[in-house]
Simulated scan of single mutants.
Amino acid sequence: MAAPVDLELKKAFSELQVKMIDTQQKVKMADLQIDQLTRVQKHAKLTHAEIATLPDNTRLYEGVGRMFILQSKEEINNLLTDKQKTADEKIKELEQRKVYLERSVKEAEDNIREMLLSRRAH
């Protein structure tokens, strides 16, 4: 009877290991995306602060691909504000996803612990 128990535990451990590796990769990817979005957010904030110091009649250009388009100061400010809001929303989504992933791994670990404890009790 010890062999089926060992096989069941081995299977549970291997599934946990696969889940842990997958989750760790997803968490690392989320961290990288958060870092990148934070840089985008910071860049937009700094650009917004620089533009605020310019007179209203200053000619401003928006970079689009390999060309530049003349835009008003208000339009540029709106674009930068939208960029910051979008980055903030995505960061919040990624943080929630990280929490979910970490919780699912913890639950899997707890399930295996319970399995081990129940096996020892018998």
Score class of each variant (00 low, 15 high):
residue 121 A to D: 08
residue 100 Y to M: 11
residue 71 Q to D: 12
residue 31 D to C: 03
residue 39 R to L: 09
residue 7 L to I: 12
residue 96 Q to V: 08
residue 35 D to A: 13
residue 120 R to A: 15
residue 109 E to L: 11
residue 64 V to L: 08
residue 100 Y to R: 14
residue 108 A to R: 07
residue 3 A to N: 03
residue 40 V to P: 06
residue 100 Y to D: 15
residue 75 E to P: 00
residue 122 H to Y: 08
residue 74 E to A: 15
residue 88 D to N: 10
residue 56 D to H: 09
residue 3 A to Q: 07
residue 60 L to A: 05
residue 104 S to L: 02
residue 67 M to F: 14
residue 114 E to W: 00
residue 81 T to C: 03
residue 26 K to F: 02
residue 100 Y to H: 12
residue 99 V to I: 12
residue 41 Q to L: 07
residue 63 G to C: 06
residue 56 D to C: 02
residue 61 Y to H: 10
residue 112 I to F: 06
residue 16 L to I: 04
residue 107 E to I: 14
residue 58 T to K: 07
residue 77 N to M: 13
residue 66 R to S: 15
residue 65 G to I: 04
residue 88 D to L: 05
residue 82 D to A: 06
residue 40 V to T: 07
residue 115 M to K: 13
residue 11 K to R: 15
residue 10 K to H: 06
residue 116 L to Y: 09
residue 82 D to L: 11
residue 77 N to K: 10
residue 10 K to A: 09
residue 40 V to C: 13
residue 79 L to C: 04
residue 86 T to L: 13
residue 82 D to G: 09
residue 72 S to P: 00
residue 9 L to F: 04
residue 26 K to G: 04
residue 90 K to Y: 03
residue 55 P to C: 04
residue 26 K to Q: 14
residue 117 L to T: 07
residue 36 Q to K: 10
residue 21 I to S: 10
residue 12 A to M: 08
residue 52 A to P: 09
residue 121 A to Y: 06
residue 15 E to P: 03
residue 96 Q to G: 10
residue 13 F to V: 07
residue 51 I to P: 01
residue 51 I to Y: 00
residue 59 R to G: 01
